[in-house]
Design a protein around this nucleic acid. Structure first.
Length: 572
RNA sequence: GCGCCCUUAGCUCAGUUGGAUAGAGCAUCGGUUUUCUAAACCGAGGGUCGUAGGUUCGAAUCCUUCAGGGCGCGCCA
């Protein structure tokens, strides 16, 4: 039930049928044609720019054309009254009561699916993919929630979504991680002092992992090399458990976990690169020394390189290290080879701001691997800046005292975190204030939207009305008042918000919209304080109009919060 | 030096493929509760949409220039 789409289509069809009468030719180029809600100072419900676009294409006067089209619409489309031409050639339309009632009935019938479209693509969304060397920290949080809500949004529209986590369980960092666990075990078992060398992980959680391993197993831990295989397996198991647990507390459950190590072991990397060798994208060669700081380990050696410059990257990228082993990028390329082979319609990666430089190479890799058939789109989440009582504070990972998701959850509930992390466009930095999120006021948007829902539930409670009451209307007792009309207009916009958010992969539009809807509701509610006749409950009952308004708001808020996976208490 | 992102009210930010008089919250000032949840609402002031050009019926939005801020520029992961 997207009235913008359906009415626009109807109007376009009408114009197409009357092409000759209107004396216009370029009828098939409707690019840029829109139907939307006009600015508040116009009384109309809908507005279209179609005449300006058509006039330009046909080189005629847009106002004159508008007058002809106005006539056409008036004669042929019964849902509209007061068709008007305004400004440089806008066509402004108002819905008849009958049309409005029919639209409202449809929305109420659609209920939980109101706002959704029926697309049917399969998506793979890779997000979080935090290194399995410790618990999740706050930096991961934004991307995690972004990915999760984007998945919900696309599912809401009928798509199939696989939420995927890539486990970087291979390479030097894992060795250092396992070594840290080993040393902590030695510390506990043999009272050897843990010396914090460079690249080791000093954090407290390593001790916890060490204890768990010691408690469950009677291993000797005499030598690092001999214990390695066992220790690696156990340490990774516990750290992934920690991460999954953090994610679960945030309301996030991935469908699929792919291990980097297993890709190496099953020779996926070799296969991917063998395939690319047949193209112009991978070949043996030399790379230029890096441009930034000097790097001691850099050697001019012949090796396999991926020619990412062909995809707009700054420089070509090494697939092999000095010793001939695969680079991180080679493994990741293989991982994407695997994704491509799983035949999704679309691949999406959610990255942190510090990985922007990686995008061209990996998007290029997918093009090369799929012969341009599969599209990978990377979405970047900018940094989160933390504030406490108005002052910023930083988290450093090196010293081991970073703020974990778990710490965060001890102070702030999941609902607030989820809503706040999406209350800004992913392209801008986000201020996350611990205190604001805890507030129970308009300053805290989560609360404000939840409160709107709770107020409506409170009315139903007072009147002993069940939430799921079937409601159909044949006519309205009296016209909707101005406040109700405004709310209905906002409700009609919901499908549009969902559509844009999905198309642009911008879930932040949803919390922002919900906040705006809540504002209209709270405003209307308070009108009852000034004037008795605006009270929702009149003589112990509720008018049909008010019932409709509250039902519409509930439908949209519930659908929206469902996508966000944020709870809606009935009482606050 | 190069790439990506950002620059809109005092502050933090919204703003569908270009649409009509650019919007919120905070802060400031002033008002509203014997009441369905005042944990709320209403009003006022506040703007050269970073700069300079261009494209056109029409630009915060598209193109170019410059300036400022953030992130990144490994044969680490």
């Amino acid at each position: 039930m997207n009235i913008f789409d359906s009415y626009l289509e109807e109007i376009l069809n009408l114009i197409q049928e009357n092409q000759k009468k209107l004396n216009i030719k370029e009828i098939n180029k409707f690019k840029g044609v829109s139907l939307e809600i006009p600015p508040a100072n116009f009384a109309s419900d809908l507005s279209s720019n179609i005449c300006m676009i058509l006039a330009k294409l046909n080189n005629v006067d847009s106002k004159k054309l508008a007058l002809k089209i106005k006539e056409l619409i008036t004669e042929n489309i019964r849902d509209f009254k007061n068709v008007e031409v305004a400004g440089p050639g806008f066509i402004n339309l108002s819905l008849t009561n009958k049309a409005l009632i029919s639209i409202i009935n449809k929305i109420i019938i659609e209920g939980k699916s109101f706002g959704s479209t029926t697309s049917n693509f399969s998506y793979n969304i890779e997000f979080v993919s935090a290194n399995p060397t410790g618990p999740m920290h706050i930096g991961h949080c934004r991307g995690a929630i972004f990915g999760d809500v984007l998945s919900n949004l696309l599912k809401f529209n009928g798509n199939k979504v696989t939420k995927e986590y890539y486990i970087n369980d291979y390479g030097n960092q894992i060795k250092n991680f396992v070594k840290s666990v080993y040393l902590r075990i030695r510390e506990i078992k043999f009272k050897e002092k843990f010396i914090n060398e460079k690249d080791l992980y000093p954090g407290e959680y390593i001790k916890d992992i060490a204890k768990k391993i010691l408690n469950k197993n009677k291993f000797k831990f005499d030598s690092f090399d001999e214990s390695y295989e066992f220790l690696e397996k156990e340490s990774l198991k516990y750290s992934m458990e920690m991460i999954k647990n953090d994610l679960k507390k945030l309301g996030i459950i991935h469908d699929s976990f792919v291990s980097e190590k297993s890709l190496v072991e099953t020779r996926t990397v070799t296969n991917a690169i063998t395939q690319l060798k047949k193209t112009k994208f991978v070949e043996e060669g030399y790379l230029e020394p890096p441009k930034g700081e000097e790097n001691k380990n850099w050697k001019k050696t012949k090796r396999l390189i991926f020619k990412s410059v062909l995809f707009g990257d700054d420089t070509n990228r090494a697939l092999q290290k000095n010793d001939g082993s695969w680079t991180y990028f080679a493994n990741d390329l293989a991982y994407h080879f695997d994704k491509v082979s799983r035949k999704y319609d679309k691949l999406i990666n959610i990255l942190g701001a510090d990985h922007t430089g990686y995008i061209k190479r990996i998007e290029g890799a997918v093009k090369a691997l799929s012969e341009e058939k599969t599209v990978l789109e990377c979405k970047v989440c900018q940094l989160v800046k933390l504030y406490k009582k108005g002052t910023p504070f930083k988290m450093s990972k090196r010293s081991g005292d970073f703020i974990s998701v778990n710490d965060l959850l001890n102070e702030v509930n999941k609902d607030s975190i989820r809503f706040m992390m999406l209350n800004r466009s992913n392209d801008v930095e986000l201020d996350f204030d611990f205190d604001k999120v805890l507030e129970k006021s308009k300053e805290n948007p989560v609360f404000y939207v939840q409160y709107c829902h709770a107020r409506i539930q409170s009315i139903y409670r007072t009147l002993n009305i069940k939430n799921k009451k079937e409601l159909q209307i044949n006519n309205i007792e009296k016209d909707f008042n101005q406040y109700e009309k405004e709310i209905i207009k906002k409700i009609l916009e919901w499908p549009k918000i969902v559509k844009i958010s999905s198309r642009k992969y911008e879930p932040h539009r949803i919390p922002i919209y919900l906040y705006q809807l809540a504002t209209l509701f709270h405003s209307y509610w308070s009108k009852g304080n000034e004037d008795e006749k605006f009270k929702f409950i009149q003589k112990g009952t509720i008018s049909k109009n008010t019932m409709i308004i509250t039902q519409l708001i509930l439908i949209v808020i519930q659908n929206g919060m469902n996508i966000l996976n944020v709870s809606l208490p009935n009482k606050m």
